[in-house]
Nucleic acid binder design. Structure first.
Lengths: 236, 236
DNA sequence: GAATTGGTATGATATAAATCATCAATAATC
DNA sequence: GATTATTGATGATTTATATCATACCAATTC
């Protein structure tokens, strides 16, 4: 992690970003944002912050991919979100929590824009549009979270694996060859941690799905043959 | 469900309510709020709204208790929240969702204050303080949701039952006899649906916990003997 | 290119969970 | 107060899941 030449938000190509969308109306504020922005670069698999750390920042992905996860008992982690360009994270720290309740690591090479909490609060107070849209965004995230909760409570192992694959596809898409995990960043263990399984179970179900001509595996590579059938497993 | 004599928010005793806390600063707005407020009374076990219904309102509990749940496959529902006085629900509908992704029913006799969505949006726009605090509230709810997700993914049946009981206690407390309040309104099935089990499993674990002197059961009544030990099961 | 490492694949086994059948207790209805 | 539903309790059985042991494969290091 090291400081880097900062891109000004105005020049940033990331149109998905909350700051870009809602905070650059007046010049004065744009300047203050640039002054208060920290930009850090992370290489693959670096820890960005850890559960228990003092909440000192709100973060946005300028480019790259990040996994947000929680530590559970017996080293059984749970991946909460897979996110990419423009998405905000660490925002649970906006509530009265003093410490991060989650950890975050980079999956690929990643650039993160951060603001310290007091500045971000000032920004929220002076930009109702930002606050409003953040509120809507959170309402939507709550929706997703509740769907996930129900799914985890009800799904069997096969359905959970299908769900995990679909989650990855929703977050990062498929490449031209219909493969997920393009750069082979996500292990069986990661897939397992998305849905509360262990890597062994994932491997076995992947073999079953291969048998059923739903996908093909070649080491870490997973090629989707029949996305429709995969989705049918989880009823979508 | 029938319309009722409306209490004016200013006279309402519910200090926990978002509207009460953030929206009554100016007289003009107070009047508009009162004019646009619908108050409905529900008796025990009535459906307030159902998953799939068109989102037409944002709701607050004036008094009473409500369970918010999602329908899953094979009639296996999942209880998302147990809430009471002052709490907001149906707010996932604030996002672009057109239809409720959850159902809500009254657990006890309950009074619900509602605003239609367009009015509530206007209220949010004209009251940044409300929007801001709602945003923080949602951030906090996201935290809770993620904890629950991890717990469901990792806990075994015994731990899940303990978790369910603690959830009920956190929501509705214990009475003087250390009994789970309103336990007679929550069935084994409800306890099961809090943590993705079936009623049979709950019954069995309750018998175990009785054996371990952690609680006593007498039909629907559940009396907590050793709360500390109960919490230890889920590591809190 | 042999050796090490980290992840993946797979069958056997042990354990946990879900289901089923039955009975008992309570609440609701007439 | 007898009858009928409903819900809770419990043991037996089936099924699903988690764990273990081992082998395999590919990438990396020496």
């Amino acid at each position: 992690m090291r400081h880097n030449n900062k891109i000004n938000c105005i020049d940033c190509e990331n149109t998905n970003c909350f700051i870009k969308k809602h905070c650059l109306d007046n010049i004065e504020q744009s300047v203050r944002i640039h002054e208060n922005k920290f930009v850090n670069r992370y290489t693959k698999n670096q820890l960005i912050f850890m559960e228990g750390n003092f909440v000192d920042s709100i973060n946005f992905i300028q480019s790259g991919r990040v996994k947000v996860f929680k530590k559970g008992a017996f080293g059984k982690d749970q991946i909460i979100r897979l996110i990419s360009d423009g998405e905000i994270f660490g925002h649970r720290g906006l509530s009265d929590a003093e410490k991060f309740s989650i950890s975050a690591t980079s999956i690929t090479d990643t650039m993160i824009c951060s603001f310290d909490k007091p500045f971000f609060f000032k920004l929220l107070k002076s930009t109702p549009e930002l606050t409003f849209n953040l509120m809507l965004y959170f309402a939507n995230e709550l929706n997703h979270g509740e769907n996930k909760l129900r799914d985890l409570a009800i799904f069997n192992v096969r359905e959970k694996v299908a769900k995990a694959l679909i989650t990855i596809i929703a977050a990062y898409g498929l490449n031209k060859e219909n493969e997920i995990n393009h750069a082979h960043e996500l292990s069986r263990q990661d897939i397992a941690e998305l849905v509360g399984l262990n890597s062994n179970q994932v491997t076995k179900i992947l073999a079953d799905l291969k048998e059923d001509n739903i996908l093909e595996t070649d080491n870490k590579k997973i090629k989707i043959i029949n996305l429709k059938k995969l989705k049918e497993i989880v009823n979508i």
